[in-house]
Amino acid sequence: MSGEPAKEEAPRAPSLPHRAARALSRLGGALSAVLILVVLVATAVSVFNRYVLGRPVMGIDEATGFLVVAIVMLGAAEALRRGDHIRIDILFAHAGPRTRWWLELWSLAAVISFSTLLLVASWHTVVFSRTFGAYSTGYLSIPMWIPQSTMIVGAILLIIAALAALLDLIAERGN
């Protein structure tokens, strides 16, 4: 069910917007991967601190929660580009090439619509949190708009990745 193989294996020379989109997705993916390592190290360090030093690190829990949001938001576009997002592809499996093309178009349109709505809503949330002056409740007590704004980044990355795939799809039809 893993969908299309990696787009970068397409024989055609990729267009400039395609390459730009790819670079952005990868950058987001790399940041996301680094954050996974950060969470891993932080959790391991907190175990060490508790048992060996007898002094737990404060705020690890809270930071981890925020980092999970960032990990997802930064990584989602790369996962989309690589066709990782799970889908039910019974229809795909039984469809001819023409129907498949339309289904693929429909599916990308769905991702773009969802991401755009998420972008609009995230923007409102971030702006509201800033003016309201909302802080996190745990030991970190950081302004909420900071972790929330990773959603804006994530939505934009997803839109770009989906648009690039859409352009490829349309070019494919041309051939």
Partner: peptide
């Protein structure tokens, strides 16, 4: 929707899965 997405993901226990 943004608040809900944030709330569903902002959970330290979720980090257990990637680890």
């Amino acid at each position: 929707i943004a608040d809900t997405v944030f709330a569903s993901l902002n959970n330290p226990l979720l980090a257990t899965i990637p680890m």
